[in-house]
């Protein structure tokens, strides 16, 4: 998947959860990505964060940290 598309999709998810009441945005984004993204896509996302995470919403970056902790 092109990095732009992946960043776009991840940010879309963050945009939704940021509008929800509650504090645990990163956890919810992480849970959504964990449940719906195939491992290849998650790996690509993690790699993108390792490479600086250009373009990613901070909530996604926080979510990736949670994903790693959970995995």
């Amino acid at each position: 998947m092109s990095p732009e598309k992946m960043v776009y999709m991840a940010n879309q998810i963050a945009t939704f959860f940021k509008t929800q009441p509650g504090e645990d945005v990163a956890a919810r984004v992480a849970a959504h990505i964990h449940d719906f993204w195939e491992p290849r896509m998650r790996d690509q996302l993690c790699a993108h964060v390792d490479a600086g995470g250009a373009g990613l919403d901070p909530a996604v970056i926080a979510a990736v940290a949670e994903l790693r902790a959970g995995a």
Binding site: M1, D35, W37, E38, R40, M41
Partner: peptide, 11 residues
Amino acid sequence: EPGLRINNMLD
């Protein structure tokens, strides 16, 4: 693990 969705398969 969840699998790929159609558009992810194409990607």
